[in-house]
Design a protein around this nucleic acid. Structure first.
Length: 875
RNA sequence: GGGCGGUUAGCUCAGCUGGUUCAGAGCGCCUGCCUUACAAGCAGGAUGUCGGGGGUUCGAAUCCCUCACUGCCCACCA
């Protein structure tokens, strides 16, 4: 048995236990086990990342489920890992190089990638340390990284497969281009932000009459150098007869056609639209339709290119200013208006995204989407909270092709080789044999193209491994809602396509953690507290408990460090309760004559069972805050506040049974610790080791979760104890109102309605006397008021009288009684009304009606007693 | 423009498969306590027309409609 120090020091405990758990490999599942399996998909964090509060919450949730299931008889796999985070990692490493005055081109592709691997190792250690520190019960032996050999084979296999099915294609499209990172991005990697900009009205002279103009409104005058048409709506009377004519593109001095297409919104700007197929997705569409030429004027670095004439080599935003200046000089600016619109930025790099015409690889998503949509619609995969299914459906039914090629070096290079001598294309998992005749596509794949295989690639797919057979499909995914499209939807599509199975059955979308100003906590904003610091200050258990306690399903959490006091205080409470029980047991060693179970013992057992029930229900419904609240209320509200206080008295009254009494309490506490262990793994392990003798390699984390024992549920005891608690609260309240010092004992008489009511009090008399500091405690069934001067209150079938020495403040007492009388009268009136309402009596269930009648009866009696007492005081 | 949430005590939020265990918890506040673990504690207390309006119902914080404010996601008409 371990000694429990007087004060609770979480840090020492945590470091020691991490070591203990690791050494014993408690969290490696057993492949030979016949127990049912439970497997969890971890959202692999970016290797570059520090854990944010969001990760902390997510990993805590996963750990709760892992530990809970493990203790409930499941062979549990929680497989950790990280993803290579293509853009993010490459950006970081390039930044480091820049500090040394180097660029990736100075190193060359091979050396650069080597360098990234070095950095990856450093970051990776950090992630492992953080996950370990927060107590994640993952199986480190199975750790995976998206660029591991096995996972890379899976990526190539999937690419080749889709390519051969015709679902991967290469094409010239307008994509989102990041001019800083110089790579294509998928639609999901672009974030739109509202910007205050200008809307420029530019005059385009008609070719056959240069005194006449078409005025065009644009936010991006620099792209006009690439205009190849002007479009108007055919129904627009302002432009009747103008379609088919030509206008002279200013500055470039090129004749371009005016076309008519219904796509043009008549209400916007001037109703005339410039068409720049190379720099706008919609213009591109129109360009295709009318077979217009595409003129690219901005290059891959965001600078104007050779087609921009005198502006060539100038940055796009600078060129805008210069072109506007030039147009002004030419008298071709009609006006400039302020204009607010949404502009896209790179999710990772932050650069303003350029719609850019380029050759990229795409996945046709429509064919993959249908099965994935059905899996969720039929409930085979369940989302929690459920409303996310709607978001999912919306996206899936409007899904667009996925641009998967990235012009980066860090990532899975596309498994496509081009023959140097002819047009032949080779696409296989392994490189061509005569490699010297081939050149591999230089692009790498979007990181999500490896992440979407995560649930099965980490288990060894495409090999049909034992792990895959045993643990796939998985059971549970907990993730942030903001990656539902990036990741969740794509995993479902990939899994169904390549394994024919769903990847997981339950998806929990956890809360977004925000700071107190309501901003999402993120690395880029730097507003997430350092989780390690918080753990050091409050304890990991405190942080874990606080997060889930504050996290009702489907809401956001407004987090501030001080809130961790909830968890810390709770941990402290636990610690002291354990210490106290142990101390008392030690003190009373040998006094182990069996004791009689009284109503309080039955009550606490029953409360424990109700708590287990509520806890399991909550976890099964993914209401983690309710699960943790159930434990908090039981341990603090029932066990510590009431049961331990009762035990003190009981042990005093039964000195020969004292050890047995505390032994019994420790057994209950033992169960409570097990229930709490998934949420607060460290302190529960430490106390569990401390309260009883354990074997060397015994751990609460692999012990058995208590099961519900229906025979121990005692509704009657629970109801009666509530009454006694109310009665005591009422007695204490009267004491306080009368200004009695807590050290002074008082006399109380209780009038009971029935003999049965009286029996309850008689059986618990000692406890009540002691806890409410009562000297003379009379329990009567007579209807008379006591002979002494008193104040009174009514609880259920009990009327309490507190004896008053000396004078009472008659006026104050009258006011109080009057208030209570009025309230009771009002209540009686409302029930009477209800009961005399024929509709109520006939339509409400008989149970409800009976209940109301009983209430009416009770309150009439109460009123009578109150009035009686009032008379007494006044006289 | 389309979709999804939120609005309950000073603050952060539970409750929302309709009926005094429905008006709650924690923090904060007030009063009194170092009472045989815990002052990170104990006992007691105050505080709310459950966003506004309308409806369904015998009965609504809970269901429906509507308005207001607020947050998020998707689309991106230059």
């Amino acid at each position: 048995m371990k000694e429990l120090p007087k004060t609770y020091e979480p840090n020492d405990i945590e470091l020691r236990l991490i070591d203990f758990w690791n050494k014993n490999k408690f969290y490696a599942p057993d492949n030979n086990s016949t127990k049912p399996k439970y497997s969890i998909v971890i959202p692999p964090p970016n290797v570059t990342g520090n854990l944010t509060m969001g990760h902390m919450l997510n990993n805590t949730i996963q750990d709760i489920y892992a530990r809970w299931k493990r203790m409930s008889g499941f062979n549990t796999l929680w497989l950790p890992g990280a993803d290579h985070a293509g853009i993010a990692t490459q950006t970081v490493v390039e930044g480091k190089l820049r500090e040394e005055g180097l660029s990736r081109y100075d190193l060359g592709r091979g050396k650069f990638v080597e360098k990234v691997w070095e950095w990856k190792d450093i970051y990776h250690k950090n992630i492992v340390a953080q996950l370990t520190r927060m107590g994640a019960s993952v199986d480190w032996q199975r750790e995976r990284f998206t660029m591991d050999e096995g996972l890379s084979i899976a990526v190539r296999k999937v690419f080749v497969d889709l390519y051969k099915k015709g679902l991967i294609y290469k094409g010239k499209r307008i994509i989102n281009w990041d001019p800083e990172q110089q790579t294509a991005l998928s639609d999901e990697e672009v974030i739109y932000q509202e910007m205050n900009d200008k809307l420029y009205y530019v005059k385009y002279p008609l070719l056959d009459d240069e005194r006449k103009f078409i005025i065009i409104a644009t936010t991006r005058p620099e792209t006009m150098l690439g205009d190849t048409a002007v479009a108007v709506n055919p129904n627009d009377e302002r432009y009747t007869g103008i379609s088919g004519k030509k206008v002279l593109l200013p500055i470039v001095d090129k004749a371009i056609p005016v076309i008519a297409d219904e796509y043009v919104e008549m209400g916007f700007g001037t109703g005339a639209l410039k068409i720049t197929p190379a720099h706008d997705p919609n213009d591109f569409m129109i360009g295709e339709k009318y077979k217009l030429e595409s003129v690219q004027v901005i290059d891959h670095t965001g600078k104007m290119n050779e087609h921009a004439g005198m502006y060539s080599g100038i940055d796009r935003f600078e060129a805008r200013m210069k072109i506007v200046q030039k147009l002004k000089e030419l008298g071709l600016i009609e006006k400039i208006e302020d204009y607010t619109h949404n502009v896209g930025f790179s999710e990772r790099g932050g650069a303003q995204v350029e719609p850019y015409l380029s050759d990229q690889w795409f996945v046709s998503m429509k064919p993959l989407a249908e099965a994935a949509l059905n899996a969720v619609r039929t409930g085979e995969i369940k989302f929690h909270p459920q409303r996310w299914t709607k978001t999912y459906e919306n996206w899936m039914t409007n899904i667009r092709d996925w641009c998967i090629s990235r012009q980066l070096w860090w990532g899975h290079q596309i498994p496509v080789w081009y023959n140097k001598n002819n047009d032949e294309i080779y696409c296989e998992v392994t490189p061509p044999k005569d490699i010297e005749n081939w050149e591999q596509d230089p692009d790498v794949l979007d990181t999500w193209f490896s992440s979407w295989l995560w649930p099965f690639s980490t288990m060894g797919w495409p090999e049909n491994t034992d792990d895959l057979k045993k643990y796939f499909p998985t059971d549970f995914l907990s993730t942030a809602p903001d990656i539902i499209f990036f990741w969740v939807a794509r995993m479902i599509m990939a899994s169904l396509e390549f394994t024919g199975k769903i990847p997981f059955s339950d998806v929990y979308f956890h809360n977004i953690v925000r700071d107190e100003m309501g901003r999402k906590m993120s690395k880029s904003l730097g507003n997430s507290p350092d989780v390690i610091e918080v753990m050091n200050k409050y304890g990991t258990d405190a942080l874990r408990f606080t997060l889930v306690y504050l996290a009702p399903q489907g809401t956001d959490i407004y987090y501030a460090n001080e809130k961790c006091e909830i968890g810390r205080n709770f941990a402290n409470k636990l610690w002291n309760a354990a210490r106290f029980l142990l101390m008392k047991k030690e003190q009373s060693r040998g006094a182990s004559i069996p004791f009689e179970q009284d109503i309080f013992d039955k009550w606490i057992q029953s409360r424990l069972q109700s708590t287990i029930k509520a806890y399991l229900k909550a976890l099964n419904e993914f209401k983690i805050n309710e699960a943790s609240a159930a434990l908090y209320d039981f341990i603090w509200g029932d066990f510590c506040d009431w049961y331990i206080e009762i035990l003190k008295i009981k042990a005093n009254d039964n000195p020969d049974s004292a050890e047995a009494i505390f032994e019994n309490a420790i057994n209950i506490f033992d169960d409570a610790l097990k229930l709490l262990h998934p949420v607060m793994p460290f302190i529960t392990e430490e106390l569990w080791q401390g309260i009883k003798e354990r074997k060397e390699n015994e751990s609460i984390s692999i012990s058995n979760m208590p099961e519900i024992q229906d025979t121990l549920i005692d509704v009657n005891a629970e109801e009666n104890i509530i009454l006694i608690q109310q009665l005591m609260a009422s007695a204490r309240n009267m004491r306080a109102e009368m200004g009695l010092s807590p050290s002074v004992k008082c006399d109380i008489t209780v009038n009971c309605k029935t003999e049965k009511d009286a029996e309850l009090l008689v059986s618990t008399k000692n406890y009540i006397k002691s806890l409410a500091k009562i000297e003379a405690f009379e329990i009567e069934t007579k209807k008379e008021t006591p002979s002494y001067k008193s104040v009174t209150s009514v609880v259920g079938h009990y009327q309490l009288y507190l004896k008053i020495e000396g004078l009472i403040d008659v006026e104050q007492e009258k006011t109080k009684l009057n208030k209570e009388i009025e309230r009771t009268e009002g209540f009686i009136i409302s029930i009477t009304k209800k009961l005399s309402n024929e509709n109520f009596v006939s339509k409400a269930s008989s149970e409800v009606v009976e209940n109301e009648k009983k209430k009416l009866d009770d309150n009439r009696q109460k009123l009578e007693k109150l009035k009686e007492h009032y008379k007494l005081i006044v006289s």
